[in-house]
């Protein structure tokens, strides 16, 4: 017994080191593979407040670029509205009930944006209290940003598309061949689309849009343009570099997309699987 106690006293530093080191490794692995079941993340009260404070100051420096973006978006929306009004007069659309909105938008502000790591997350200032849920899609006026993966009362964390675990269904606008959007961790302006079959016609400058099958994003949201492509080794799929429409290093305000039917469809899918 005395020997055991002596052993512990002699190696107390090593034991403490090993246990804390393994604990840290455990948190790391949990963060890598089971990212939806974590307790320790930046949506907690303290970190949220700290980032909130900082962003309240930083906002003033980005007023100009934010205004320009809003004007640009207003212009696009006005144009779309004109075309819509014009078409509505004499087409079948007039018969559709526009009160049934499958998607609802919620504005939010980025309070901490990261893009320099391999696994990037964005913190926003809206949470459960604003009925934001895990798996809500997030976009800006220019394109997609990511998917909500953690929520607390007042804050939510977004798994950015600049994350090695990100996998979002996208397709070519011209041909409807679909693939998966991933990121190799190198350039925050360039993401990769894999699994588009060799049969598809891909050109530089083709637009990539969301596919809409996942219920997270509506169909047809812009993602980016094809910058470069190659056939991926011996496989029969393309590996495409896509230049994002969004500047992921400067987001500011964004929209969280809440799908009204998501819960319903999810439960249906579950039933189907059972």
């Amino acid at each position: 017994m005395k020997q055991i106690i002596n052993f512990f006293i002699k190696y107390k530093n090593t034991i403490l080191f090993l246990s804390l080191f393994l604990l840290a490794i455990y948190f790391t692995i949990q963060n890598h593979f089971y990212h939806k079941s974590r307790i320790l993340n930046s949506t907690n009260f303290i970190t949220g407040k700290v980032y909130d404070l900082r962003s309240n100051i930083n906002d003033y420096f980005y007023l100009k670029s934010q205004n320009e973006r809003l004007i640009e978006e207003n212009k696009n929306l006005r144009e779309a509205l004109l075309i819509f009004d014009y078409n509505k007069k004499d087409t079948i659309i007039s018969g559709i009930d526009f009160k049934a909105k499958p998607f609802v938008f919620q504005t939010a502000k980025v309070i901490a944006n990261r893009y320099a790591r391999l696994d990037n997350y964005i913190l926003i200032n809206k949470g459960k209290n604003d009925s934001i849920h895990i798996d809500n899609g997030v976009i800006t006026s220019k394109g997609i940003v990511g998917i909500v993966d953690q929520v607390s009362e007042n804050y939510a964390r977004i798994q950015s598309i600049l994350n090695s675990r990100s996998a979002i269904n996208v397709k070519l606008r011209s041909s409807h061949h679909f693939g998966t959007l991933t990121w190799n961790g190198k350039d925050p302006n360039i993401v990769q689309v894999i699994e588009i079959p060799k049969l598809a016609q891909v050109k530089k400058g083709d637009t990539i849009i969301t596919e809409g099958r996942s219920l997270i994003f509506p169909e047809g949201l812009p993602v980016g343009v094809v910058e470069d492509f190659a056939i991926d080794g011996a496989s029969s799929f393309y590996k495409i570099d896509v230049r994002l429409f969004n500047d992921m290093t400067n987001i500011g305000y964004l929209y969280v997309i809440k799908s009204e039917n998501q819960e319903e469809l999810k439960s249906l899918e579950l039933e189907e699987n059972e």
């Binding site: 490794i25 455990y26 790391t28 890598h32 907690n44 700290v50 997350y121």
Partner: peptide, 8 residues
Amino acid sequence: DIFEDTGG
């Protein structure tokens, strides 16, 4: 780590 969401 908590501030940066980097696990441990």
